[in-house]
């Protein structure tokens, strides 16, 4: 079943095109990577799906429902979890409390003034942490965690809302190399088991090629290539973007030689 359909998204910032006719689809259980150089419009497209940005035109359909332009909290309630480029967690709380908070919000009980929040959804929270091998750090304050573990907590928070779709903006940015592979394995495993669709942007090509089912390549706001990792790797256009424009090369060499 097609979980997410993005149709002709456009976004301009003061005349600068950040997304032009961006269209793609994502099936349940599929992992889709979005790559491209800095300023290619990855975050813009991503944030239009997550509700942080409103598209100038185009549609975002989640399981047949139009979600374009809804605020993030409404999109979250429809089953979309997300992680941010710089991990966003509740720094004043313990790991467990972060998860309890997410579960309280999922249950719609954030205005409850009578219950004691520390007693709510403890077991469910511990269960989620267990899935991510973080049960031992449950009582730790967020400030004491390594950044890789902060990212894992953020993932757990996103999973607390039992999402159908997971949006991850550079999930491995800022992590030590060894932690990156582990996190991506974890995400892929959970997504495949639970049939969650995953859309992620990433700079770490190891992570992209190891786990993505399909890859979108964005340049200057436009999708220039889409397909399986093999197709994308072999695409000459993509090679050019990542290795520099060959046409320019001879000219520059000649000039360098002329200058001695």
């Amino acid at each position: 079943m097609t979980l997410l359909v993005v149709e002709n998204l456009n976004k301009n910032f003061g005349g600068v095109v950040a997304a032009r006719n961006v269209s793609f689809a994502l099936a349940a259980g599929e992992i889709l990577a979005m790559i491209g150089p800095n300023g290619a419009g990855k975050s813009t497209s991503f944030n239009m799906v997550g509700g942080q940005l409103r598209p100038d035109s185009g549609r975002v359909m989640l399981a047949g429902q139009d979600i374009s332009g809804l605020p993030p909290r409404a999109i979250c309630r429809l089953g979309v979890g997300r992680s941010f480029q710089v991990a966003q967690t509740f720094l004043s709380m313990s790991v467990l409390e972060n998860l309890q908070m997410a579960l309280i919000a999922y249950a719609g009980r954030t205005r409850d003034m009578l219950a004691r929040s520390s007693a709510l959804y403890r077991d469910e929270a511990l269960g989620l942490l267990d899935q991510l091998d973080m049960a031992e750090q449950a009582e730790w304050p967020m400030g004491a965690l390594a950044y890789g573990d902060v990212k894992r907590v953020e993932l757990a928070i996103a999973l607390a809302g039992a999402p159908r779709l997971l949006l991850m903006d550079e999930p491995t940015a800022g992590m030590a190399p060894a932690e990156r592979a582990a996190l991506m394995r974890l995400v892929a495993g959970i997504a495949r088991r639970a049939g969650i669709g995953v859309l992620f942007t990433e700079h770490d090509m190891d992570a992209v090629f190891a786990h993505a089912d399909r890859i979108l390549v964005l340049v200057r706001g436009e999708i220039i290539a889409a397909g399986s990792p093999e197709d994308v790797r072999a695409n000459p256009e993509v090679q050019r973007v990542y290795l520099g424009t060959s046409g320019l090369r001879a000219a520059l060499r000649a000039r360098a030689a002329a200058h001695g």
């Binding site: 309630r77 979890g81 941010f84 966003q88 509740f90 908070m101 919000a105 996103a158 809302g161």
Partner: peptide, 15 residues
């Protein structure tokens, strides 16, 4: 407290 710590995160979990 959650909204104070991180408003984007709070919005993203539905607050």
């Amino acid at each position: 407290r959650a909204a104070r710590d991180s408003a984007p995160r709070a919005e993203a979990i539905g607050i």
